[in-house]
Simulated scan of single mutants.
Amino acid sequence: MKMYLISDNVDTATGLRLAGIDGVVAHTEDEVKKALGYAVNDGEIAILLITEKLTKSFPEFIKEVKLEHYKPLIVEIPDRHGSGRGKDFITNYVSEAIGLKL
């Protein structure tokens, strides 16, 4: 089983390539669809890393893959500019999930 990256910038792709993770840089709707299709159809890809910017730009494609395919597991990662999430993201997420203020 292997990991694969779909990134919106070359820097993230290069950094993960140095760590041994193959991937592609995609900017357009067609490029993202093609990359997702490749990842879903390659039986060896177990984890699909995708930058937060792409998941915000093309949420319908990501959601479709998550709902229709059990594999690969899609993991959103921040790019070189950092996460678009607030500093208390995890605390807020847990608070909403259990209904208690932490």
Results as ranks from 00 to 15, higher is better:
Pro72Gln: 12
Gly99Val: 11
Lys63His: 01
Met1Val: 12
Ala39Val: 08
Ile21Tyr: 00
Glu44Phe: 02
Lys66Leu: 14
Leu54Thr: 05
Leu67Gly: 03
Tyr38Met: 13
Ser57Ile: 02
Leu36Trp: 03
Val10Asn: 12
Glu60Val: 07
Lys71Gly: 03
Thr55Arg: 03
Leu100Met: 13
Val40Ile: 15
Gly86His: 14
Tyr93Cys: 11
Ile90Asp: 10
Val25Ala: 02
Ala35Gln: 04
Phe89Ala: 15
Ile74Leu: 14
Thr28Leu: 10
Gly82Val: 15
Glu96Val: 06
Thr14Gly: 06
Pro59Tyr: 13
Gly23Met: 07
Leu18Ile: 13
Ala35Met: 04
Gly37Asp: 14
Arg85Leu: 15
Val94His: 10
Val24Met: 04
Leu102Tyr: 14
Ile45Asn: 00
Lys53Phe: 03
Glu52Phe: 01
Gly86Ser: 15
Glu29Cys: 01
Leu49Ser: 00
Val10Glu: 14
Asp42Ser: 05
Asp79Trp: 02
Leu49Val: 06
Leu73Phe: 12
Thr12Met: 06
Lys33Ser: 03
Lys71Asp: 07
Glu68Arg: 13
Leu48Met: 03
Tyr93Asp: 04
Ala13Cys: 10
Pro72Ser: 07
His81Lys: 12
Leu73Met: 15
Val24Thr: 15
Gly82Asn: 07
Tyr93Pro: 00
Lys71Trp: 04
Tyr38Gln: 12
Lys56Leu: 09
Ile90Ala: 15
Glu96Lys: 14
Glu96Ala: 11
Leu102Phe: 15
Ile21Asp: 08
Asn92Leu: 08
Glu31Ala: 10
His81Ala: 05
Gly20Leu: 05
Asp42Cys: 09
Pro78Phe: 01
Val24Tyr: 02
Lys33Leu: 03
Lys66Asp: 11
Gly43Leu: 11
Gly84Glu: 14
